[in-house]
Design a protein around this nucleic acid. Sequence first.
DNA 1: TCATCATTATAGCCATTGCTATATTGTAGG
DNA 2: CCTACAATATAGCAATGGCTATAATGATGA
Lengths: 151, 151
Amino acid sequence: MSIKPTAETFQGVLVDADAQVESFRQTRISRRTELVEDYVELIADLIADGGEARQVDIAQRLGVAQPTVAKMLKRLAAEGLIQQKPYRGVFLTAEGSELAERSRERHQIVESFLCALGVSPATARIDAEGIEHYVSTETLQAFKSYLNNPR
Amino acid sequence: MSIKPTAETFQGVLVDADAQVESFRQTRISRRTELVEDYVELIADLIADGGEARQVDIAQRLGVAQPTVAKMLKRLAAEGLIQQKPYRGVFLTAEGSELAERSRERHQIVESFLCALGVSPATARIDAEGIEHYVSTETLQAFKSYLNNPR
DNA sequence: TCATCATTATAGCCATTGCTATATTGTAGG
DNA sequence: CCTACAATATAGCAATGGCTATAATGATGA
């Protein structure tokens, strides 16, 4: 840009450029890992509940088609998060279980926090599904603190 | 599925299937509109600050390449949110301004809320960038209430 | 056993959002 | 005026995440 506005030259609505770039960059990274977290979390839940995680169940839960699930499972397997046997269910690796557990806990904290704040359970569930993937460790800690000592 | 677990037959970790489908569906919808909101919000900020929004500035702020911005601007123009003159800057339509204003306000509330909760400003900025797109009207209202009457 | 049906795999399509490379246009200085 | 340079436009590629249609496989029941 020819004339670059800086914090010194402007007192406008714009925040620091570098900081904003970092925010958007972080958001794009979270967006990439979002689906992966949803999958492993759901797989862990299905296994805990019924002993197995089948593609049809995953698809039905996520509201997508079975081939969509199949494609994603290949990716998860390639990343070492799950193990697949052809025409059989999927199982989480140690790494996958760990990620699932972290996601599940974070999800639970976010949803509980929203409820504690006065949001209705139905809305809290929907919003938590989206919010959980963008909550940093620091913010999660703040949520936990609030839960331990609500207003 | 052959044996469908229901809320009646199980007390496991699984929530109601239909409700979960709705959450994921809503998340996918938010994900689609997320970038659009970021763009119009940024364009509004750039115009407010410097009188114009150029592709190079948008690209630099978002941390993406200029052709990426050009492509997205075409989409925004097709959706009636901005007006473009070839080789010139972009301007928000009335509809675009309205969306930008709503996004800006929501963003501000989320970021302020996180700060009020004790999150550091730097982290609040990053997290708000991701969270803002997944906050429902109801949750936003809860954030506002907290801001009006913090602990 | 074996035929049927549920489940998984595969092929191929589309839209989105990123990129690089390059062509085109505007504009400012000499 | 006209030449550089900055900015925008365009072409084309890749990865991601959807979809439908269909093939292949597993499992169940007659």
